[in-house]
């Protein structure tokens, strides 16, 4: 095992897949300018700059995918996807169905999102749930270098359109990535920490926050399991339900706003299929229903923090009068 950054993992995945399959190409605003290593190895036909026009970038990917190429498009920041909604939602997501299965759309859309750069709401908007709601698309949002690499390679090999959201706070985060061929199947969550009292479910940067919270909970005798969803569509329902069946308590954590978010889907899933296992209400800890601010302290406050996760977890035990030794009185409900 060696340690590389998330950005390097993405670069490796692109290079390996382009080497493996000559039908893979990448284009977007500044792609050929920034990824000069890919340009040097694969040439200008397969590594292309585009005009700043997200609609036609995405539409070109859809048309190319329908007719034999396997495009990866970099649309830069997630809010820019608004300019490409028609092409992604109405074309990539629907045309296989509308054509009665005549066409497939093997394409990947890359988009950055999340707090970390202080870029404000027109560059930072976690809108992954929008795409999870649209038929025909797959949505992934990894949390660590190995998953960035393995999921991107799997996305490029997938015969369906995949939205690959990259939490921009993670780009320079180092992580262990296998030297050999490394693929992570789309649709499978990772249990990144085992536990028995409570399940923390998250994805992207807040997985690390959950890990910190789990560590702190362990110090006070609460055993928290942490699930990194990695894939938001398809959702690994089995992994969620198995864990809830074991722990009976769930806190879902994500940076995206609460209403109709991934947390709502997880909560509904648990209510529908694991109600009898629940020992406490499902709790969502999310960003507020607000645009993301640029000011650093406000931007950070947008994101659920470990204190809040610990408090939410303890409240579950307090509310239910659980047998665990920790009580509500020992821990404040809200972060100081």
């Amino acid at each position: 095992m060696r340690t590389i950054t998330v950005n390097d993992a993405v670069g490796e995945a692109l290079a390996e897949e382009m080497r493996r399959d000559p039908r893979v190409l990448i284009f977007g605003e500044g792609v050929a300018t920034k990824r000069h290593d890919l340009l040097a190895e694969f040439g200008a036909a397969r590594v292309r700059n585009t005009p700043l026009a997200e609609g036609i970038i995405a539409g070109t990917a859809v048309g190319a995918a329908a007719t034999g190429l396997r495009p990866v498009v970099d649309l830069l920041f997630a809010p820019f996807l608004c300019f490409a909604m028609d092409e992604i939602v109405n074309s990539a997501g629907k045309l296989r169905y509308l054509s009665g299965g005549q066409f497939a759309f093997p394409m990947v859309v890359l988009a950055l999102s999340g707090a970390g750069w202080g870029v404000g709401a027109q560059h930072n908007h976690n809108l992954e749930a929008w795409f999870a709601h649209a038929p025909g698309l797959k949505v992934v949002m990894p949390s660590n270098a190995a998953d960035f690499k393995g999921l991107l390679k799997a996305a490029i090999r997938d015969d369906n359109p995949v939205l690959f959201f990259m939490d921009l706070a993670l780009g320079f985060q180092p992580g262990e990535v296998p030297q050999h061929e490394h693929l992570v199947p789309i649709g499978r969550a990772a249990t990144v920490r085992g536990g028995s009292d409570l399940t923390l479910i998250s994805y992207a940067k807040t997985v690390h926050t959950c890990m910190e919270a789990a560590h702190r909970l362990a110090e006070i005798g609460v055993s928290a399991e942490v699930i990194d969803l990695r894939s938001l569509k398809p959702l690994d329902e089995g992994a969620i339900l198995r864990s809830v069946g074991k722990t009976g308590r769930v806190v879902v954590v994500h940076e995206a706003s609460r209403s109709c978010g991934i947390g709502a889907e997880v909560a509904a899933l648990v209510a529908e299929h694991a109600f009898a296992s629940l020992r406490a209400p499902v709790v969502r800890l999310t960003g507020p229903d607000a645009p993301a601010p640029a000011s650093f302290p406000l931007e950070q406050a947008f994101v659920p923090q470990a204190d809040a996760i610990v408090s939410a977890a303890m409240k579950l035990f307090a509310d239910i009068g659980s047998a665990t030794s920790v009580t509500h009185a020992d821990f404040p409900l809200e972060p100081a």
């Binding site: 609609g55 539409g59 070109t60 048309g63 190319a64 007719t67 034999g68 092409e87």
Partner: peptide, 23 residues
């Protein structure tokens, strides 16, 4: 390849189909 009922959808995909033809 496509009958688009989104007015202009055909224009957005045509470039990609032509890219496949070319490549």
């Amino acid at each position: 390849i496509l009958t688009s009922t989104i007015v202009g959808g055909e224009l957005s995909l045509a470039t990609g189909v032509a890219l496949s033809q070319k490549m």
